Amino acid sequence: MSTPANAASRPSPRREEILAATVRYVAEHNVSDLSLRPLAARIGSSPRVLLYLFGSKEQLVREVLAVGRAEQLALLERCEVEGGSARETLELLWEWLTRPERRGALRLFFEGYVRAFDRREPWLDFGTASLEEWLPPLERVLEGTGANATVVLAVLRGLLLDLLADGDGGDGDGDGRHAGRVHAAWRDFLDATLP
């Protein structure tokens, strides 16, 4: 099957459906090890259709990462609108980001972020773009508080990474034994930064 030059950029309901299914798939698996054959089998497609719709595996990965970044940014902007004070906004953001159903999306984000250190496609600008997207809304939220948006973002991401490292208790037993420590650390940070 030959791929028309613009097939990969043409929006279509089937393309959007496959992209959404791929996002769900990689939230459960490593995107770094993404292989088209098992992906296609799992989502009811074929490698040829994936290549026709997205042009290449790299382009598919880029779009999956873009969906994850857009979802996080939308969540941040929603918190900015609904949160109230800077403290309330950050509390709301933390509550949403740490919901169990978001664990796969967070894992995908951090995988993309770390892979961006290699400075190779499809991860090339993932980390930089994420910083450029998050810092302006955080600066707006924190305006007039004296808090530093870079510090807040670094602590937020560091604690989220710590929470992910805890997994289901670290040994698969489902108890999340370090989660309380991480949540308490976020509250302590807010107490010290936005009393």
Rank of each mutant, 00 (worst) to 15 (best):
R10Y: 02
A129P: 03
R15Q: 09
L53G: 04
N148D: 15
L131W: 02
A192S: 14
V26P: 01
G172R: 12
T193D: 02
Y113I: 10
D125V: 00
P11G: 11
L106K: 04
Q59T: 12
P100L: 08
R115L: 15
L160M: 11
R62K: 15
R103Q: 10
A8P: 00
P137Y: 08
V64C: 03
E16P: 05
P13E: 15
F117T: 15
T128C: 02
V61A: 03
W123I: 09
S2Q: 10
P122T: 11
R181Q: 10
E101C: 04
L156T: 05
R157N: 09
L138G: 11
L160C: 10
A105I: 07
R177S: 08
R37V: 14
H29S: 04
L93T: 07
A70L: 07
R140Q: 07
L36V: 09
L138D: 11
P47H: 04
L90G: 04
A21K: 15
L51S: 01
D118L: 13
D162Y: 11
D175N: 10
F109W: 14
T98H: 11
P100Y: 03
V64A: 02
E95W: 01
T98G: 06
S85E: 09
A7S: 15
V141K: 01
A149L: 09
S56Q: 11
R120S: 14
R78T: 13
L76Q: 00
R42H: 13
P195K: 03
G127W: 02
I43C: 10
R24P: 00
A149H: 02
E58V: 00
E132R: 13
R107F: 03
N6H: 15
T89Q: 01
T98C: 13
L75W: 00
G174C: 08
N148I: 01
L76S: 06
L90A: 03
L124C: 00
P13T: 11
G84M: 06
A185T: 12
L194N: 12
A21I: 06
S85L: 03
E71K: 10
G176P: 00
P122Y: 13
P137I: 08
V23Y: 05
E77S: 07
L156C: 01
A105N: 10
A20R: 14
